[in-house]
């Protein structure tokens, strides 16, 4: 095997390998970093985040606008603090409402943003005041049972 044909084969091999990597990167995977451009950071405090995880999507009106970057426990307020990055193209008013929602009945949890009516937009680093915690199924059920029981107790008295 002479040098030139050998070089050609190696060239073909490397080109094929790089093409395969590109295929995996562009066709098979979605690049989580690239759909969020020039992000800025916001945070919100919740009483209970349920099953929310780092890298969970942040959506507004169903559109992906950012991702959760950090979750920590705030020992001053005894609340969970969720830090997330938002695409720089999108601005949200200061009275935006942050919810922890679930996609489908048993799907993953995500952070939903409901914009309010304020003129002023949230600046990078701001904390969202209005939040609603995750719906925890056990709590919901026990609440329901408690109410039922309370109803049942009252019924015979009347």
């Amino acid at each position: 095997m002479s040098r030139t044909t050998l070089d050609l084969w190696v060239g073909v091999f490397v080109a094929m390998g790089i093409a395969a990597l590109l295929f995996l990167a562009l066709k098979v995977a979605s690049i989580s970093g690239s759909d969020i451009r020039s992000p800025y950071t916001l945070s919100a405090r919740f009483d209970n985040i349920g099953g929310l995880k780092v890298r969970a999507p942040v959506k507004s009106a169903g559109v992906l606008v950012g991702r959760v970057t950090e979750i920590r426990y705030d020992n001053e307020h005894f609340q969970a603090e969720v830090v997330f990055s938002v695409d720089g193209r999108y601005k949200f008013p200061t009275d935006t409402f942050a919810n922890i929602l679930t996609s489908g009945l048993l799907g993953e949890q995500y952070l939903g943003l409901d914009p309010g009516g304020e003129e002023k937009a949230l600046a990078p680093g701001d904390v969202i005041k209005k939040t609603q915690s995750a719906v925890v199924l056990e709590k919901l059920i026990s609440q329901f049972m408690f109410n039922k029981a309370a109803d049942g107790e009252q019924a015979p008295a009347k």
Partner: peptide, 18 residues
């Protein structure tokens, strides 16, 4: 393809594999 793309993350799955 779309289900695949939605679930496969470039950094976590492709780059880690590489």
């Amino acid at each position: 393809w779309s289900q695949m793309r939605a679930a496969v993350d470039f950094r976590y799955d492709v780059l880690n594999g590489v």
